[in-house]
Design a protein around this nucleic acid. Structure first.
Lengths: 208, 208, 208, 208
DNA sequence: GATGAATGAGTGTTCATTCAT
DNA sequence: AATGAATGAACACTCATTCAT
């Protein structure tokens, strides 16, 4: 929470986020952003120092928001059976990925000032593996689950499959019903169903 | 064999592939490529017509190569039990992804200007789903497998997990033993193991 | 007054006009212009959108100026004998051509990319033919002129001869007295005398 | 006659001449020329040294051809009345201009190696003024003409009007009947008629 | 605190020319 | 004698950024 953003800055970040999601970081010019956000071209440099630093702030902003959201979520499922917790956890992660999919794409790109962003993302992932681990252990202890797969493997399946589906519309839409404009919505349902079956199969939980 | 490339062209394509995977299509300038490849800037336009057309050739070149390789592979596993076939298929796909990770890194990001390339990639994926489907059906018919998950879901797990691991070194290397420079090698082993367990669990194949 | 130009823009247009008249549109690079005008290369795109659009503005700017000037001129000679009007008209047109020879030098060559500019030029010429026609008719009606040549033929003689003299210094200076640096001045006098004699001969006006 | 051209060189010059006439010197690339002429790109540099030198050769080639043609023409009208000679002379000059109009446009452009070309053109024009002068003097002596205008003024009217009409299609076609594709043909007729009337008026020759 | 004008560096591409063969 | 491959320089243009106000 090192940094507080003004409303105008948040406005710019939101506009930038959407544009970058659509056209990529390099494909989005500060002129695009400033035009869309109804601000002066110079504002991006003025507020954030540079386009890249803006990216950095955007990143932190999103991580911070997600962290807050996850804290809330964790509270909600704190009490309950591990199978419910696991199901909700998968749903939550998949949902977050679909909601802020572009943002996870950033990391791949080689940005200059990205070093600390990697740290953020890492911690972000660890939050999930740690939670997944808790739930699995609890499930195994309670006898609800028969197997205890490694949490990073579970997370890999969830995040990997979700991102693949998000990015490979061309392939996946062949298997998704509904109109093209609802692709993400429908794709999310399908990949979620797949992941629920997969993970529950892995942990040996018997649904009747 | 629509197109034959000279050695120099292949050299340029290889260099371009790596850079584009790392920094994106827009993030990679023809000057970057030409500097790295030790050629004149004008050569990219000279050889391929334009930067975008080069991208197109790069794409086709890699798809074609993989298609040839898959044809060979399919022949090898033509006779054999479905469980062996499934195992080899997973190994093959994962291996291909790790081998040509540069390529798979950019195809999903940079499809904006390359409408017709989508067709190529689509057919490429269909080759795999079709093969997976055959093996699953054979396995179910022979009683070796008890469940018949949808092939696109299987492919999604395999490709998604592999690409995630390839791209998110920072996260996954926490769980991978060995030196950093062997990351890809070790990561491939780990994700392959995970995927074998996962897929065999899904199709209900009992290992003893 | 569709468009107001800043002083800097007008400065650029003036420099561009001279260079383009000398070396042609394609022969004049934006670097030539920016170097000559002591501005940044990017300014041409910045101010006018592109090199071609700059050409377009330059064109309109000059046409508009001439139109304004002609309106003034027409007012001055409104009342008077047709022979005086004809004489003044010829003097005016020749003078304009010599004054803005740069402009008239390129308009005839570089109309390739500027379809709509043709309209402007056309209307520009029509202004003159129409005026010439009026004067001739009045002269014939009053008995001052005996012949009524077609106005476009008169204009062709005037404009053609003037431009030829402007552009073919090498030839015409053989017949022009005075120093080389006064070429245009002297050439104007000579071609004007020639045209006065010629046109008055054509319309059958008797000088004593 | 310093230089003899091979057939291939003449072929290239002819192709180049047409293209340059259409698109200008800078607008015509050596690739355009070589493609049209079915020769290798390198040939232009190989044969002529450079694109500009080719231009120079093209120029000389055309001057030489015209000179030969004019010698023939002069022979034909050697015997005959001055009024016939004057008429034929005007017809001849106008016709040459329409035939090789583009080539007269070259001089205006500032080429680097053009110095000697100016000499050529100058001599070329002098050939005509000299002939015009002869005819006028003969006409005046014989009493056929009453006035003796200066030959350079006559030439200016002829060449200026012709080139103006050739270059200002947009204006002149308003006054020319017939289809657009016959513009040059019809324009030549009209401007010729105008010039005949004009010049004969100037020299005071009475037609009945 | 905010901005419009302006800039230098960089973009992909085309150019006439050169050179090894 | 002729050419296909290759090149360096130049092209118009866009970029993120700076700076005076």
């Amino acid at each position: 929470m090192k940094k507080k953003f003004t409303e105008k800055q948040i406005h710019i970040l939101n506009v930038a986020e959407k544009l970058i999601a659509k056209k990529g970081f390099e494909g989005t010019s500060v002129r695009d952003i400033s035009a869309q956000a109804n601000i002066n071209v110079a504002m991006i440099s003025y507020y954030f120092g540079s386009k890249e630093k803006m990216m950095s702030y955007l990143y932190r902003y999103r991580v911070q928001k997600t962290r807050e959201s996850f804290a809330e979520f964790a509270e909600i499922i704190r009490e309950g059976k591990p199978e419910m917790q696991m199901k909700e956890l998968i749903k939550y992660v998949v949902n977050q990925l679909f909601k802020f999919n572009y943002f996870h794409g950033f990391v791949t790109q080689e940005l200059r000032h990205t070093e600390h962003l990697k740290e953020d993302l890492l911690e972000f992932y660890r939050t999930f593996t740690s939670k997944i681990d808790d739930v699995i252990k609890k499930g195994v202890a309670s006898g609800a689950f028969t197997n205890a797969p490694k949490p990073e493997d579970i997370l890999t399946l969830i995040v990997g499959s979700s991102l693949f589906v998000i990015r490979n519309k061309n392939f996946y839409e062949l298997y998704v019903s509904g109109k093209e404009e609802n692709y993400l919505e429908e794709a999310e349902k399908k990949v979620l169903a797949n992941l629920l079956v997969t993970v529950f199969s892995l942990i040996g939980y018997q649904t009747d």
